[in-house]
Design a protein around this nucleic acid. Sequence first.
DNA 1: GGAAACAAGGAATCCGTTTTCCGTACCGTA
DNA 2: TACGGTACGGAAAACGGATTCCTTGTTTCC
Lengths: 340, 340
Amino acid sequence: MAETPGVVRITDVAALAGVSPSTVSKALNDTGSLRPATRARVREAAERLGFVPDAQARSLSARRSFTVGLLSTDSAGRFSLPVVLGAENALVGGQISALLATARHDPVREQHHVRSLVARRVDGIIVTGRTTDPRRPIQVPMPVVYAYSPSQDPQDASVVPDDTAGMAAVGRHLLSLGRTRVAYVGGRADQAASTLRHAALAATLAERGVTLVGEPLFGEWSERWGRLAVDLVLGDHSPGEPLPVDAIAFASDQLARGGCDRLRDRGVRVPQDVAVTGYDDWDVMALASRPPLTTVDPQLDRLGQRAAELLLAAIDGRPAHGTELSPPRLVVRGSTAGDT
Amino acid sequence: MAETPGVVRITDVAALAGVSPSTVSKALNDTGSLRPATRARVREAAERLGFVPDAQARSLSARRSFTVGLLSTDSAGRFSLPVVLGAENALVGGQISALLATARHDPVREQHHVRSLVARRVDGIIVTGRTTDPRRPIQVPMPVVYAYSPSQDPQDASVVPDDTAGMAAVGRHLLSLGRTRVAYVGGRADQAASTLRHAALAATLAERGVTLVGEPLFGEWSERWGRLAVDLVLGDHSPGEPLPVDAIAFASDQLARGGCDRLRDRGVRVPQDVAVTGYDDWDVMALASRPPLTTVDPQLDRLGQRAAELLLAAIDGRPAHGTELSPPRLVVRGSTAGDT
DNA sequence: GGAAACAAGGAATCCGTTTTCCGTACCGTA
DNA sequence: TACGGTACGGAAAACGGATTCCTTGTTTCC
């Protein structure tokens, strides 16, 4: 109904309610001592005018900007985007606005953004990146929380996805299906996401005395490599012969989708002959794959939310230290379950 | 080298340079009349201390916040994200910061965000959405530019992708390859992206006296529907028989990828037997498809950039009116070209 | 009837940059 | 040497609206 006119100031509300500006402030902030009737009258006047206190003026008094920076090293890509959104979502609840700053892997741009955020006197900064590999910390005079990409300084507050738990869940799931001849296909060999997931899978299987089939295969994060890796795993296997594996765990949904495609090309049934798992729960891959992928949802929005919580606590004088693990969630679908 | 210390104020720079704060201001802003030597001395002092003028104080004087809001109706998804990033990128050049506000299709959240942006006295707002269908305008006392989703009010400034030009390019491309029996597969029938692209393709072919094969097929924006649509186009065709079409234009890369998969399943060669085109140039679809897709890149980052330019001009007192079309770009790949 | 609690207003406060004046020093000319 | 003009730099006032003391009425309870 009432639309936001030009600009409504506290004096306008005061005039309408027939009180002074200071009374309006007390009424709207639940401070001071006022008659309930007055409070209500002011509230109604503010509502009617669509009054929203000027953030600049407020931060003048509060000595805070009620703003945090979201610094994305990445161009807010597939991984940092959910984190950023989760964080923004959590901040809105705390009446805090989010300044977006994307650096696109350029240190100069990043430095520029950092300066800009400092100039804006943000109350804190959330730093996100493209990979789970540790990154160089930033130097600023306000609290910082690192999300997804942890800081190299273990004293800094970081939140990272618990890949170990995620891949362990995959391992247990495969064992529960009776699969014991499992191969692992990773992405780039120099990235934590590849190596950590491999280690977690190997360790989980080892608890039941099961060892991975062959060496872990590392390559790149593409469907293409997923297809190639399947060829490497199957070797010169031809239809009818016994298969060297009964499950393949891929380190990403993209790899797994490529893998499924190749398995189907070669006449291997998924999941009857070989169970397949992915990682990331990236819908356009996991759901479009034939069959749909059993995978791990790293719940990056929750991770971003958690980072925001830690940042708000730090701004509030209760800083956290060290790296926190954000829990993933196993999602079972047709590539292991049999039913669609 | 020099790291940002606690907080550097203009007085600190003044003290180090041995001048007054006002002189520092003049030196750094190239105003007033100062000896070049003084200017240089101040500049060096500011550099050494890593001085960045407090944005709040600056906006106090300038009566501007040097901030714009990026309001995304969508949760900054696949389409609005590139727009947002393009806009943010362009704003950085203009020394302007971007406040991120995502509404996730919730009118209440959107209203909340709009109020918050008004309270922050942003200099302007860029509104983006999930589809190219017109949306209800927002009521705020500052300039607004609509990007991707235009405003329902034709007087508002909007920038939308030129789907007509994009699909026309596809049509000309197919004709240039000698394909004349073309079918069209769209997404949801109630969305402009489906209908507009169909109309553009039909019109372009009609210029050369070519009509589309069969009725346009509408369904949903999924690979699954792409596969189904191919079955509908081919009917009960079996290998060896003449094909009813020599090209299929899909309204998205996702549809086209599903289509390619089904064509291959059914033994139809792409592009020799049937040429396939997509739309969006979404790398994970267009490049992962076998063969890679000829498609249209709507250049959404440029669209966002353009929206930012229009907004900056409007803030500067030169408002634009009406809907501007942002040009797409045809990307030719293996699904029509023959070579990979 | 007096003291304490309560209500509401007036005016100072918050902040650091920008900008408007104004004073000084220096130069060239008379 | 005196004077006017100009170049340079400084002092102090804006800039802006919400918040918060502190003060002054006003009620209420004993």
